[in-house]
Amino acid sequence: MINLKCLTIATAVALAGFAGNAFAQTAWPEPGKVVTVYNGGSPGSGQDLTARLVAEALQKIHPGSNFQVVAKPGAGTQLAYQTIADSPKDGYSFGIMSLPTFATLYLDPSRQAGFNRDSFAPAANFIFDPGAIAVPAESPYKTLKDLLDAAKAKPGEVTVAVVGPKSREHLDVTAMEQAAGVKFNPIFHNDSGTGLNNLLGGNVEAQQGSVGDFLAQIAAGRIRLLAVFAKAPSAFAPDVPTAEASGVPVFSGVTRGFTFPAGVDPAIVKQLSDDIGAIVNSPEQQENIKNLGFEANYMDMEQFTAYAKSEEDRIKDILSKIPN
């Protein structure tokens, strides 16, 4: 026999659940409408792969949706950010925000960037790849301190491969120089692959990069990490000390998250933020993230926005101390 009271309660619960759902979930994205995900990387690059991974995952979360990844490489990811900043504020365009490079782009006046931090509404951070410094396996340097001592003894002579001028790697080396009072000789490359080639070939003594850059080579035993520039050792290289432990309190790495242009409905931004959180926590995606060589590092809207500000301050500081 159906108890009227039970029925009422059940209906009430159902209605509440339904209503609750309707409030908690905005109608974003509408099925069939295309959501464009911009990224500044060339095809096959880390940014591109990250964007595709997340786009796939988002499509699974929102069945019937259509997330299109559009690569807009050019001007060292600057073009992609410009595109995001200029895109319509209807919530159907967003893209990758990669710190600290993002900050460098608008803090460097010669780049004439048409945007700054206020042009964006960061949604969430997805992954983190801590900075790391590597030497060939047979190198005489066993710890970061060895390298710094050598740099102190021969100022401007110890060669460290970095990617491009004022790139993240270059700024990391500069930060190290400022923290330890030494001078390195940065050698610039077009990408980390050619840098790796020079490292393995013995043309440079060390290379600054991120853990993800070096994983394959570490596993093969051809290079060694001297230090990791994070607050805690990396899960991929547990016995490598942090730079802080070696006396150089520099914290840096690649964080990759997602951002809308400024002015988008905050409810939509929060929706994406929650979705990214869900992706980070799902076991199958954790496997995928590990394959890319990254650590998941979810930051929600507020945290990511604060992080963007703190990175901007950090980069501003380093840039101001570069002589030229």
Partner: peptide, 23 residues
């Protein structure tokens, strides 16, 4: 070596990585 020799090869590298293979 795990180093791509040219841009097209870099895409192959990406494919390897996405599939969990570290060349």
């Amino acid at each position: 070596l795990g180093i791509p020799g040219s841009p097209s090869v870099a895409i192959l590298l990406g494919a390897f990585i996405i599939n969990g293979l570290a060349p």
